[in-house]
């Protein structure tokens, strides 16, 4: 097979399918990171540049809970997820919201500044050394025939689906969820039924951060943590959000899987370094051909 002058190797269908399946597992994590990003975008109409830094912080949280207290990284979710919610709530309510005076372009810069502070703080306190959470079960798993799925991969997929489902139920069934959806499209109307918009913004930011903290737990057994780890995932999550449609939950999930599969197939055919650019190519193609994404509405909604 030839592709722009490159000779691509040809593989049997089992190898290709195996690659695609591991793309699904990888994509589940991308979907989860993208879900927090798209939730915040859909309601506050801002791109949260601090999302990657918060993911990294979550991973350090999981790492130190394991290292210092011997807590299993999955069990650590019970601590880092509420912790992430509290941190996100407080950041939005008392830092981002206050500093931006309601102007979207300032919010953008505030979140960017926040990410720089968090990343450099991590460099200062934790150094640039890569640190790994070691679990005894990271190489065990299930033989799927075309590929071998290890428990951390299966947990990532199950966790992502469960969290997306739980978020959807929360948004549809609870008063707070409905208030979030109401604020996303009609802030004035929300104020006039007595919804405290500042509180709802902070709850949304808290939820986005809680979700990314859950992603941190799911990532910890397979990815070593270092101060720049967030950037890797957030760049891809941006692509997922644009591909799926800004503000769409289904879009984040489907987009995550598509990007994960594309990346793995790209790696298979073009090698580690060249394979990753397939994701960037998708990003540019989507912007050119369908800027609203696969599931996007013209005015992004939750």
């Amino acid at each position: 097979m030839e592709f722009f002058g490159l000779t691509l190797p040809s593989y049997g269908w089992e190898t290709v399918l195996g690659s695609a399946v591991s793309g699904v597992f990888l994509g589940a994590i991308y979907a989860l990171v993208a879900l927090g990003l798209t939730l915040i975008y859909g309601v506050l109409h801002i791109i949260n540049f601090a999302h990657g830094a918060l993911l990294m912080l979550g991973m350090y949280g999981v790492f130190f809970l394991w290292k210092l207290a011997g807590i299993d990284p999955y069990l650590a979710m019970l601590i880092v997820v509420p912790g992430g919610f509290a941190l996100g709530y407080l950041l939005q309510r008392f830092v981002i919201g206050k500093a931006s005076h309601g102007r979207d372009e300032i919010i953008l810069l505030v979140t960017l500044g926040l990410s720089i502070v968090i990343e450099n703080g991590a460099l200062f306190f934790f150094s640039a050394t890569e640190r790994s959470v070691l679990v005894p079960y990271d190489l065990d798993g299930i033989d799927l025939g075309v590929t071998y799925a290890v428990w951390p991969e299966i947990a990532a997929l199950a966790g992502s689906l469960a969290i997306t489902g739980a978020l959807w139920l929360f948004m549809m069934r609870t008063d707070t969820g409905r208030a979030i959806r109401a604020v996303a499209r009609e802030r004035r109307g929300a104020q006039l039924v007595g919804i405290n918009v500042d509180h709802i913004f902070a709850v949304t930011f808290g939820l986005g951060t809680a979700i990314v903290a859950a992603a941190a737990s799911l990532l910890a057994p397979t990815y070593p943590v270092h101060p720049q780890i967030g950037n890797l995932f957030v760049l891809i999550a941006f692509t997922v959000v644009v591909l799926g449609g800004m503000g769409s939950f289904v879009g984040a999930l489907v987009g995550g899987f598509l990007i994960g599969i594309t990346e793995q197939l790209g790696r298979l055919y073009m090698g580690e370094s060249l394979g990753v650019i397939t994701v960037s190519v998708i990003f540019i193609l989507v912007l050119l051909l369908r800027p609203t994404g696969l599931f996007g509405q013209r005015s992004g909604q939750g």
């Binding site: 959806r181 109401a182 996303a184 499209r185 009609e186 004035r188 109307g189 929300a190 006039l192 909604q301 939750g302």
Partner: peptide, 9 residues
Amino acid sequence: PEGRRIFPN
């Protein structure tokens, strides 16, 4: 309010 401001979504 004027313009109703219902939640369209």
